[in-house]
Design a protein around this nucleic acid. Structure first.
Lengths: 203, 203
DNA sequence: GCCCAGATGGCACGTTGTGCCACTTCTGCA
DNA sequence: TGCAGAAGTGGCACAACGTGCCATCTGGGC
């Protein structure tokens, strides 16, 4: 079977697993007691490693949930990159968003639930909110080169398009998370936000 | 002379002055040595107060420059709120942006220069970048109620419009800051970004 | 001039995040 | 299979961060 990736090397896989374990432990503790009441040591203990090692995986305790928060947009950008180049950008954005937010292979069904749980405790946790914004800033930068070959706009317009699309996705996720809608509705909401934004603002 | 504000009370004005002094001291130190190499005590000393008092004005050392970073969008929202209601939203956004970024009464001419200086050291200062994003998140929320009465769109569309307009302003400021263009060009760039975004994405 | 509210400073303390070193585990090569 | 180098892990010490608490001082109202 043809593997595109050379092969993740046992150690690499362990590190990835550890990172994921830390992320889940942190998300669980954050959701239960709030980030303020959770110390880095709590997370380390819950993940079964020393405090020193925890800080080798993440720069701050809030960063620990970044992999969970970025899952949605990560899938989205991957899907967009895999979309046939003939498709108009507008449709490509919508279609990839729908696919990214639907459960599928390699997409843990609870990914959206983690995001919702974390977004809900962010209201009184500025440092955690900062992670959410950092994630979307990163995805804005990652989106630009993916969009660029699909448009003939100049660099500034391309950057704007990436930023706008990214904003639409963020607003969709925040709106969904604030509601009680089931995870299945997130994809539709994201598609709608993208459509409205690419069509232009109402006067 | 009719004053709209009841009158800021000597103590209030002192506090505001102190806050501004801290902000300027922090921006100066951040720009010169980088935020990493600047301790909260350095800022406190430069502003002529104790460390304990510093933390009564700002939650973290990076927060100290938030007043400077938010100046631009603050002016913008104020101008927008003061724009005649008959003006179509698209034009109101552009016009108020132009006014906000042009030097004028109550608008320190160097405001944009501080933003540029700070944005340039943000590349390797995640905590400072977080403040930039927090400022724009706040302005996104502040923009929504100002836009709402000028449109008949539903709440989600209104929120999207605010988020998009806000994103346009942010991209404009970041683009201007990354360039060597004089401060006078920022207004035009912002207007252009707003126009392109409100018109809709190119396919 | 007196008094209360609030601003300030000093101190102690828990938490954060990092440098350094010793130890263990994995990986590659013979 | 065995051995040497590389890499992950943990413990310790330490500077910086951010806050609760209390004592002191300033300033505005009666």
């Amino acid at each position: 079977m043809p593997e595109t990736t050379p092969r993740p090397s046992l150690t690499e896989r362990r590190k990835a697993a550890t990172q994921q374990e830390i992320a889940l432990a942190a998300a669980m503790l954050f959701a239960e007691h709030g980030p303020e009441a959770t110390t880095a040591e709590d997370i380390a203990r819950a993940a079964g490693l020393s405090l020193r090692t925890f800080y080798r995986y993440f720069r701050t305790k809030e960063d620990a949930v970044a992999p969970l928060l970025s899952a949605g947009v990560r899938y989205w950008i991957d899907e967009l990159a895999a979309t046939p180049a003939e498709l108009p950008l507008t449709e490509a954005l919508e279609q990839s968003a729908r696919r990214a937010l639907a459960p599928g292979p390699g997409r843990p069904a609870q990914a959206l639930d983690w995001i919702r749980g974390l977004l809900r405790v962010m209201a009184d946790a500025p440092d955690l909110l900062a992670v959410w914004h950092r994630v979307h800033h990163a995805s804005e930068l990652a989106l630009t080169p993916v969009i660029a070959p699909r448009t003939d706009a100049d660099p500034l317009e391309t950057r704007l398009a990436a930023a706008a699309a990214n904003t639409a996705m963020r607003v969709a996720l925040e709106t969904w998370a604030a509601s009680d809608a089931p995870a299945t509705e997130a994809a539709g909401l994201a598609a709608r936000c993208l459509r409205e934004l690419t069509a232009g603002l109402k006067v």
